[in-house]
Design a protein around this nucleic acid. Structure first.
Lengths: 211, 211
DNA sequence: TTCCAATTCACATCAATATGCTATATAAAT
DNA sequence: ATTTATATAGCATATTGATGTGAATTGGAA
């Protein structure tokens, strides 16, 4: 029996969800709440396996509740977010704060139960539009910043050392070259990257994942 | 009718997949290939809606094929990766290069067809273990690096200016304070961050999302 | 073969940075 | 009431960094 807790401020919706959970043989409804102001204590009292958490709740949003749980070190409970809209910001916040799933309320009851089971078993159930968003965020963040400024092998080495915070002298020692050679390389790097200080070069390196 | 192309080096597996696709009324198998060395031309000839791409293929891996497609500017075709293992590195590479789905070969045939339909409709079908991995990557990358080194408001302003590549003089002008005050702030920032150069401070700022 | 990019090194010079010490004023905390 | 943290400022000094100019070597491309 998978132990469930529900957070949903709308009474009708909450009762529907409760009924759905209780009607199924695989789940045990431990408790349901209209708000998540005391989510950590709620958890400690009921020890659910999976929490079904509405996002739009008065007082403390479901995402704040999620954050509270995770920052309290409670990571073993699966938290499945439930919401009407799959707006990007909320999806992002939920995912990065350790939500285990993200479902829209339009999800058919039978599927919702399956998804809760998925979450319990370590899956990450997501409405397909949400899954697509998640992938898009990834490609956004990690897309090949194809600008490596045509740095040569050696120049990349020097840049990496700069990023590590090394001084010219330290770089010279590390690469077994004279400090003047380090200067030459760095001058060239600056030209290629169109910057004129260590700091700018390092910042650009970070922004382009060259470190 | 959803037009499909298949890439799979194992002949038996390929034929099974072909049969599966052809047996379904919703799909039309445009072509199947044992390798993806000519994936861009293959696409131009067949114009599939969805490509089912095995990852482990001799010569050119499915991920290389995917990259080739996307770098050729072909983004309209949905690419669903298919593999035996859900090892982290491959999932990561596939996702960040614009794969639309990631399925394990153990996926039951009926479900595979549903997943292909999902992909066609803009969803992002993923085996649940893969979905979990994707979420974990997210939390890894975006987890709150709560270390802000107890910087004061003003110190954060100065640090941000440093990250922008400003010199002491420029920071002084920007914040309407003397250059000596800038020095004082920076000295304090270095103490708090346990560094002793602009570069290190900037690198740390980036690593901790303080910029 | 000639040319170019990359790598190496040297010398010079001015600007920027790092650090130490000191000091005043203010607001918050104890 | 006294300490603490913050913000401000000045001065001195040694180190580091940025830039210009010049040059030798090497390996690959045109």
């Amino acid at each position: 029996m998978i132990k469930i807790c529900i957070y949903e401020d709308n009474k009708q919706m909450r009762e529907s969800l409760c009924l759905l959970i209780e009607s199924s043989g695989d789940f045990k409804l431990e408790a349901s709440f209209g708000h998540c102001v005391d989510v950590v204590n709620d958890y400690k009292r009921n020890r659910p396996d999976v929490i079904l958490m509405d996002i739009d709740m008065p007082g403390k949003s479901g995402i704040e509740g999620l954050i509270e749980l995770r920052t309290a070190g409670i990571t073993e409970v699966k938290v499945v977010m439930l919401t009407v809209f799959d707006d990007n910001a909320n999806v992002f916040e939920a995912i990065k704060n350790g939500a285990n799933g993200y479902l829209l309320k339009k999800t058919p009851p039978a599927q919702l139960l399956q998804y809760l089971k998925d979450a319990y078993e370590g899956g990450a159930p997501m409405t397909s539009s949400v899954a697509t968003q998640v992938l898009n965020m990834f490609t956004e963040v990690y897309k090949q910043k194809n600008d490596n400024y045509n740095l040569s092998e050696r120049e990349r080495e020097v840049l990496k050392a700069l990023v590590k915070g090394y001084s010219y002298k330290m770089i010279a020692d590390e690469l077994f070259i004279s400090i003047d050679t380090v200067r030459s390389h760095i001058k060239k790097i600056y030209e290629k990257m169109h910057v004129n200080s260590k700091t700018e070069a390092v910042a650009l390196a970070f922004r382009n994942n060259l470190h």
